[in-house]
Design a protein around this nucleic acid. Structure first.
Lengths: 189, 189
DNA sequence: CCTGAAGTAGACAGGTCGGTCTACTTTTAA
DNA sequence: TTAAAAGTAGACCGACCTGTCTACTTCAGG
C-alpha cells in the first residue's frame, strides 16, 4: 500500500479522534510503524502531512456521499438519501469514515481559524464541493437556479446542524430529525 | 477585576482564536501578566482552567443571546431576533464575544471528542441550554409541546449550520439566509 | 554481482510543554 | 503595627515537540 499512504491513514485516524495539535509526529510514526526519516522523505513538515490528511478525508467522504446519493434517482430521492447516509455515519455504520467524531473539516477549522491558511482553505473547499453536489440535485426539482440554490442551502444548513448536534450533544437521531424537516421543505403539501 | 478573572479572560480569548491544545500555559501567563504560581493557586491544572473558560463563555454567550431575544416580543419575533443577533456576531459587531472564529463549543468538542470528558459535557450543556431557550419561545406560537420541540429543533439546526458555514466558508450572510428559511417555516403561508 | 534507492533505528538538537518550588514583595485586615 | 494572605519572578524538572543527522539494512533492476 506504500508507506506514504500508511502515514496519511494513521495521521487522519488520530487527528480525527483527538484533534491535530494534540497529536505528535512521533505518535503517528509509532502507530503506523514507519521510520521518522521516511516521513520527512514524503512530507516536508507536519503541516504538509496535515494537508495530505485533509485532502484524503475530502476524497473519502465525498466519494462515499456521492455514491450513496447516486444510488437513488437524481433529485428529491437523492437529496433525502443524503440524510440516511449521514444517519449511518453518525451511528458508526460506515467503516470507511471511522468512528464518528463530528465533521473533521469543522473540527480542523476550529484549530486553523485563519481563513487564509492552506488547511482552512482545503476544508472550505470540501464544504463547497458538497454544496455543489446538493445544488446539482436541487436543480432537478426546482424551476430556477435561484430556487435550487436556496433549497441546496437549506438542506446544507440542516445537515451541518445535524452533524454538530450529533457530535456535541450525542443525539444519534439528529439526521432523521433533519430529514423530517427537509422532507417537509421539498414537498410542503 | 481579580487575577482569576484575568486568567479566564485571556485564556478564553487565546483558546477561541487558536484552539486549546495550540495554546500553552506560559502564553496565557505572559499575555495576562499573571505569575505562574498565581495560576496554580486558582486552578489545579490547565484542564481546570479550560473548564473555567468554557463556563465563562457559556455565561457570556447565553446572557447576550437571551437579552437580545428578550428585547423582542416572546414567540415568533424573539425567534427571528436570534438570527439577527448571530448575524451581528458573524460580522464582528458584538465586542463581548470577540472576533468571530466559529462556535467555541463546537470547536472545543473537536478537541475533546470523548463525550464523557468534563469539557465536552459542559459544551453539550451549553447547546442544550440554548435549545431550551428556543423551545420556550416556540411554545408561545405552537399548539403542542411536540410541535414546539420540532420547531425549536429546526431553528436550532439552521442556526448551527449557519455558524459552521460562516466560519468554514467565510459566508458572512449565512445568518440572513438561515433567517429567510426559518421565516418561511414559522409562517408558511 | 553491484549499485542506488528506499526504509529502519535511534541519537540528537533546540525549544516548549505542564507543573513544582523557592525567595521575595505587596496587599490586606486584625 | 504586625502577621497572614496573595502575588511576583524565575529557576527548575522530566517529558514531549518538530525536525536533522548518521549508520545500517533491504531489495529491485541492470
Amino acid at each position: 500500500m506504500g508507506r506514504r499512504q500508511d502515514l496519511i491513514d494513521t495521521a487522519l485516524r488520530l487527528f480525527y479522534e483527538h484533534g491535530i495539535h494534540a497529536i505528535g509526529i512521533n505518535q503517528v510514526l509509532q502507530e503506523s510503524g514507519v521510520a521518522k526519516q521516511t516521513l520527512y522523505n514524503h512530507f516536508e513538515s507536519k503541516d504538509s502531512l496535515v494537508e495530505a490528511a485533509v485532502e484524503h478525508r475530502d476524497k473519502l467522504f465525498f466519494q462515499w456521499l456521492e455514491s450513496r446519493m447516486n444510488s437513488r434517482p437524481a433529485g428529491r430521492e437523492a437529496l433525502m438519501e443524503m440524510f440516511d447516509a449521514v444517519h449511518y455515519w453518525f451511528n458508526n455504520r460506515v467503516p470507511t469514515l471511522h468512528c464518528f467524531y463530528g465533521c473533521f473539516f469543522i473540527n480542523t477549522c476550529g484549530e486553523y481559524s485563519d481563513p487564509e491558511h492552506p488547511v482552512h482553505k482545503r476544508c472550505a473547499a470540501h464544504k463547497t464541493r458538497v454544496f455543489e453536489l446538493l445544488k446539482r440535485h436541487a436543480l432537478e426539482i426546482c424551476t430556477s437556479e435561484t430556487e435550487a440554490e436556496e433549497l441546496a442551502n437549506a438542506l446544507f444548513l440542516l445537515k451541518e446542524g445535524a452533524i454538530v448536534k450529533a457530535h456535541v450533544e450525542g443525539d444519534l437521531d439528529a439526521a432523521l430529525k433533519a430529514k423530517a424537516i427537509a422532507s417537509r421543505m421539498i414537498s410542503p403539501h
